[in-house]
Amino acid sequence: MSELEQLMAYVDGELDAADRAAFEARMAAEPELAAQVAAHSALADQIGRTYAPALQEEVPLRLRLAAQAANDGGTRRLAPWIAAAASLVIGVLAGQAIQPPPLAVGGAVPARLALAKALDRDLAADPGPVRIGLTFRDARGRYCRTFESAQDRLAGLACRDGARWRLETATAWAAAASQPDYRTAASETPPAVLAAVDAAMAGQALDAAQERAARDQGWRQQ
């Protein structure tokens, strides 16, 4: 082992007890060696601190969805709309107890998220980080809207439940690279979301005038 390798092995806890004791005896006798050990320990601490915050962040929904996509023969099975709401409680929390996940299928979309603001305010043609696709009413009369969020890399369907938007289904999504500023959101809507729309929609999708009117009335059911 070279001098540097021995020093590293000491700092990294790779020496056995005997070698460790021998190395510490040398450190006591050689201040230069002790200084090098201190520098290497400080570097290890610095590197640890640099990347530690990543562990505290909430994990994006799309990654949790990816981990739960059961794989059958290469095709990803996407939970149907109703089942998703009932069973995909995404906040499986071990390892991330710091904050509850802000966005979960079957849960309310927190008002602070850009997604909630877009669902509240945006019309189908509006530009922004979140694009609204279809707006329609479900069998219970709730307004529902499909969306694609470039920054969350997520597409889904949310329905208005009282004062909040409830996330009914969501799937990983990325804007097509060829047309980053796509206009026709519906053509981008992933099949899983379209399937959820088919299952939920009662009657026709709202046209632009109906969409605007519903928005202006705060999405209240008449």
Binding site: A54, L55, E57, R62, R64, G95, Q96, R153
Partner: peptide, 26 residues
């Protein structure tokens, strides 16, 4: 799948050492 979900924070940390861009890392 459950074990992978539990591992996601560490996978994200490791990915950050490879890519500075958070979206690329994810």
């Amino acid at each position: 799948e459950r074990a992978i979900v539990d591992l996601l924070p560490r996978l994200r940390r490791f990915a950050r050492t490879l890519s500075r861009d958070m979206a690329d890392a994810d």
